[in-house]
Computed example of a mutant assay.
Amino acid sequence: MTLPTVAIAMQPERTRYVFTPELLSRLGDVARILDRQPMTEFGDERSQRLLGDAEILVTGWGAPFIDAAVLARAARLRLIVHAAGTIKGLVDESAFDAGIKVSHAAEANAVPVAEFTLAAVIFSGKQVFRFRDIYATDRGRERTQVLQGEAIGNYRRTVGIVGASRIGRRVIELLRLLDYRLLLHDPLVGESEACALKVEKVDLQTLMARSDIVSLHAPLLPETRHMIDARQLALMKDGATLINTARGALVDEAALIERLQSGAINAVIDVTHPEIPERSSPLYRMPNVFLTPHIAGAIGLERTRLGEMAVDEVGRFVQGRPLLFEVCKQDLGRMA
Rank of each mutant, 00 (worst) to 15 (best):
A84G: 03
A84H: 04
G85A: 09
K88F: 13
E93P: 01
S94V: 02
F96M: 02
A98Q: 11
G99R: 07
V102D: 01
S103K: 03
A105S: 14
A106R: 15
E107P: 01
A108G: 06
N109K: 02
V111I: 15
V111P: 15
I122T: 11
I122K: 03
I122D: 05
F123V: 03
S124L: 03
K126T: 07
Q127Y: 03
V128K: 14
V128M: 15
R130W: 05
R132C: 11
Y135G: 06
A136M: 15
A136L: 15
T137D: 14
D138L: 04
R141T: 12
R141H: 06
E142C: 04
E142Q: 12
Q145A: 13
V146E: 15
G149I: 04
G149M: 14
I152C: 08
G153K: 05
G153V: 04
N154L: 11
Y155G: 08
Y155N: 12
R156K: 10
R157P: 06
V159F: 03
G160H: 04
I161S: 06
G163Q: 03
S165F: 06
R166K: 08
G168A: 04
R169A: 09
R169K: 12
I172S: 04
E173Q: 14
L174Q: 12
R176E: 13
L177Y: 13
D179Q: 09
Y180I: 08
L184A: 04
D186C: 06
D186V: 01
D186A: 05
D186K: 07
L188I: 07
S192H: 11
A194V: 09
V202Q: 08
Q205M: 02
Q205H: 11
T206E: 13
L207R: 03
M208E: 01
A209C: 09
A209G: 12
S211N: 02
S211F: 01
I213V: 08
S215V: 00
L216C: 08
L216E: 05
L216D: 06
H217G: 02
P219R: 00
R225F: 00
R225G: 09
R225S: 08
M227D: 03
